[in-house]
Amino acid sequence: MSDQPREQPEEPGDDALASMFAAEETAIRDDGFSRRVMAKADHGIGWRRTAIYGAGMAGFGVAVASIIDLAPYLPAMTGWFDGVSAGLREVGQGAIDPTLITLAAVIAGVSFTLVAVFAQER
């Protein structure tokens, strides 16, 4: 993040007035203002991150809990997903592959969390 040179107004302001405004601005001391702003910025990040990561983990939990219920209704897919969807349908029929369930739940949870973090950074 870098600062750019200040843009010039289309019409230069009256010199005397501009000087008076500049003097008023110069008289304003920082007196902890910047520190307070950055402290609030940090606090805001912590609060939002906690909420977002919490939502991410909640999504993870929902994904784990729902995947077995949804498995019998998953459509047949082709290509790389075919093996996954077939495996998940088997889960619903009692042929549980714990590795597959764990993998699918982790992917769902991590994806949700990443989307949430990305949205927060916007």
Binding site: M1, S2, D3, F21, E24, E25, T26, I28, R29, D30, F33, S34, V37, M38, A41, D42
Partner: peptide, 18 residues
């Protein structure tokens, strides 16, 4: 980002507050 932003706040706080 935070450090750079802190520097920008310090540099421009008087203008924005005014």
């Amino acid at each position: 980002d935070r450090e750079a932003f802190g520097q920008l706040v310090a540099r421009h706080q008087a203008g924005i507050r005014a």
